[in-house]
Design a protein around this nucleic acid. Sequence first.
DNA 1: CGATTGACTCGTACGCTGTACGATGCAACT
DNA 2: AGTTGCATCGTACAGCGTACGAGTCAATCG
Lengths: 232, 232
Amino acid sequence: MAAKRSDAESKGSGRKSAPPQSGQEPRSEPSLSLERIVATAVDLLDAEGVDGLKMRRLADRLGSGAMSLYWHVDNKEKVFDLALDSVLEYRALPSIVASEDWRGDIVHMLEDWRASMLRHPWSASLLPRRALGPNILIRLELLSKTLSKAGVADADLNAAIWSLWNFVIGATITRANFELSDDDKAAAQQRLTGLSQHYPTIERSRLLLDNDWDGAFRKGLDFLLDGLAPRQ
Amino acid sequence: MAAKRSDAESKGSGRKSAPPQSGQEPRSEPSLSLERIVATAVDLLDAEGVDGLKMRRLADRLGSGAMSLYWHVDNKEKVFDLALDSVLEYRALPSIVASEDWRGDIVHMLEDWRASMLRHPWSASLLPRRALGPNILIRLELLSKTLSKAGVADADLNAAIWSLWNFVIGATITRANFELSDDDKAAAQQRLTGLSQHYPTIERSRLLLDNDWDGAFRKGLDFLLDGLAPRQ
DNA sequence: CGATTGACTCGTACGCTGTACGATGCAACT
DNA sequence: AGTTGCATCGTACAGCGTACGAGTCAATCG
């Protein structure tokens, strides 16, 4: 019977109960809400990783029964979608609309993007496999507008955007997952040393150990941007 | 009691029964083997995706009971590791050792890498989250050696390798997942059209629809390689 | 030769998962 | 007072990974 919620659009809004007009509480707020569920899901994901998000555990944290969540959310998949997009919000610099420094604008947005995902290491691997939420679309729109302004030809525009997307995604996923397992890294290098006749070069350069992710990200980004629209 | 198998090293080998010396079968071959399990797992993954790989279903395909698999394999995770690495094998061009065309060698290897993963769309998203198997290490070794030969400074070598890694990973994951859902893409673009006041630029360029993945990959790769070691 | 061993397979069972279904409570409106 | 609709929860079910122990069969040993 009950028609369920299922706002469909975006993550927020939807609370319908009007604020109290007079002094006292007219209705006790429902204890659950989409916002609270999503925020708690993010916390749980941060703490336990993708595999650690279980509906029962999420409900426990919220102090509710597992099935209560399904009033606010269609299924577990949607929880991932909402948690993901909620983490990707971007407030563009106010300067950005009229900025002459298109390159700085792009670098700022992409570094913020990467930083946001690294703050929630589960998010990067989720992003390419799920629907594009509004927050990520805003970033793409900004990218498109800025590159266009920078003089990238219309014919190259989409390729340019996807190149930057690919680079950011790849860099962040890799960084997030390597970061989580220092022991494994050491073990891998150890194993490498034992097999140094097979992999002499990467063994010598200690590829698996001392990698300057942040530096490599900036460098690669510069290479890419140079190629896309050479600095004059 | 039984000490189990658990070869630990690599994917292959391990079969111990000697071939028949005389005319007739000396022992009936065990019906299961690591090779057969891994090959069947790859098939199942190709057909049903990551979520479709269940131990029981894998056993069904092999005509065995589910628990028989655990004699050959520690757990389900290991099945993923083995399937993944088995799909990343690379036979370098024989020319490559002495080749002067370092750029061609790298492009060839990276395009082959990407093509291998696209043939098994589940593999790309798995790669950055799992241990580095021997086949992927061979590719990294080749990359390192070739870039070194191309004149990349030792100090930049690791950054260069990871930049290429990031780009290939990101491009392949994105392509593999977008490729799987044409309907979703159309729906997204549809939704975009409805909201064109929010995303005018990407709506106009039809970013979500007509994207030349292969072309964008080649372009981005060229930009990156230009930046890493400019053509003389 | 019978007894033993080790490689290999499988049936059963347990705890955990996502979620369908229906019952319940409660505020607001008719 | 009765009805409606929002919100919550208990129970139940099918399916999952896999621990455990029993079973089979060839090779080996005494």
